[in-house]
């Protein structure tokens, strides 16, 4: 735990695999920069790995003022204990006021370990971060300029804002896809500060015997248009309608968890709280009821078309174009209209 430190920087743990930076880290860096400028402090990234100096440069282009770089052969592979040890050392030395991580499998494995060792607070899976004041109802004391850590809770049914006013750094993991990517500026200059690494084999208690990487079947996050199907499609065969509509729109096919669980389509296509979060220009929801957990992953879409036979389906509450009707009739009409216009 470090003391409240108003001069402290805003940090992002920059996740990389084999020297390639993860998008989530860049997304967070964009927001971290905004938070830092509100606080009048610098924004920095902590980079751990082997041969990662190139990632460090890239992070500067995306907005980092300072890079804290720990390079060592034993950091080549991510391991909880070694990464937590080095990151804790860095935090103790440089005393950042905020440390942000992606809510990725690595971020969610690492951040709690660091929080426990640092005896600091941690909020999981934030969908928004802001700076604001907090009044302690009991003492009447006002804590100014805290990190407001905003996240869905209770299965997505409530939105909680969490703060930490005494045991810093203020730390949070952030959901992938909820913050827009900043644009790079290759002329940007920043400082690289090397952190000396001393690790022994006892800091690496796991031995990675084998690894299998699976290519994602679809990249939902970068698609401008998504056509998503739900349980209303009825069968894997009928899910073809979603693929057909997606094809003629140049869109990526998405799905609800119900559709995935029913075997209509692969899990990589799932959108929502436990799937991918997307913010396309156009989202077409076909045979989707619009459960809160699904909405959590798509309600930031710029335009939403909903096709559902039930006029009371919650998806209609957030749709810009509401089509109450049988998808088996409506979707072919959409395909026809697009083909005729194009």
């Amino acid at each position: 735990m470090i003391k409240v430190n108003r001069q402290g920087e805003v940090w992002v743990f920059a996740e990389q695999h084999d020297g390639k930076l993860e998008d989530i880290s860049i997304e967070i860096l964009g927001r971290a920069g905004e938070l830092a400028s509100k606080l009048g402090v610098k924004v920095a990234a902590a980079v751990l790995g082997e041969n990662v100096a190139e990632s460090a440069e890239k992070l500067i282009h995306f907005g980092a003022d300072n890079i804290y770089l720990a390079e060592h052969p034993l950091l080549g592979y991510y391991q909880t204990c070694s990464y937590a040890k080095i990151l804790c050392e860095m935090i103790n030395k440089y005393q950042p006021q905020i440390v942000l991580y992606g809510a990725s499998p690595v971020g969610r494995d690492l951040a709690p370990r660091v929080a426990s060792a640092a005896k600091a607070g941690l909020t999981a899976d934030c969908t928004d971060l802001q700076i604001g004041d907090h009044e302690d109802k009991k003492s009447g004391q006002i804590h100014k300029n805290l990190l407001l850590q905003i996240r869905p809770a209770f299965g997505g049914n409530i939105i909680a804002t969490i703060i930490n006013y005494d045991r810093w750094p203020q730390m949070a993991t952030v959901r992938e896809g909820v913050m827009p990517m900043p644009l790079p500026n290759v002329g940007r200059k920043g400082k690289i500060i090397r952190h000396p690494v001393h690790l022994t084999h006892s800091d690496l208690p796991l031995e990675i015997l084998r690894e299998h990487k699976r290519e994602k079947k679809v990249n939902l996050k970068t698609s401008r248009i998504i056509v998503a199907g739900g349980a209303g499609l009825g069968s894997r065969e009928n899910f073809r309608l979603v693929w057909d509509l997606a094809n003629c729109l140049g869109a990526a096919p998405g799905a609800t968890r119900a559709a995935v669980d029913l075997g209509f389509i692969d899990r990589d296509h799932q959108i929502g709280q436990t799937g991918t979060t997307v913010r396309p220009s156009l989202y077409v929801a076909v045979g989707i009821s619009g459960a809160i957990q699904h909405q959590a992953g798509m309600n930031a879409s710029q335009k939403i078309i909903a096709v559902n036979s039930d006029p009371t389906a919650p998806i209609f509450n957030i749709a810009h174009y509401k089509i109450v009707g049988d998808l088996n009739v409506v979707v072919p009409m959409m395909i026809k209209a697009i083909k005729e216009r194009a």
């Binding site: 735990m1 005896k119 600091a120 607070g121 941690l122 909020t123 604001g132 907090h134 805290l146 407001l148 850590q149 869905p152 997505g156 049914n157 409530i158 939105i159 909680a160 804002t161 969490i162 703060i163 930490n164 006013y165 005494d166 045991r167 809160i292 309600n299 919650p314 509450n317 957030i318 749709a319 810009h320």
Partner: peptide, 16 residues
């Protein structure tokens, strides 16, 4: 507990 609840809001469906 370092983390404290600042505010709880129920999810309100936005009528667009």
């Amino acid at each position: 507990s370092p983390t404290k609840v600042h505010r709880i809001q129920s999810v309100v469906l936005t009528a667009k």
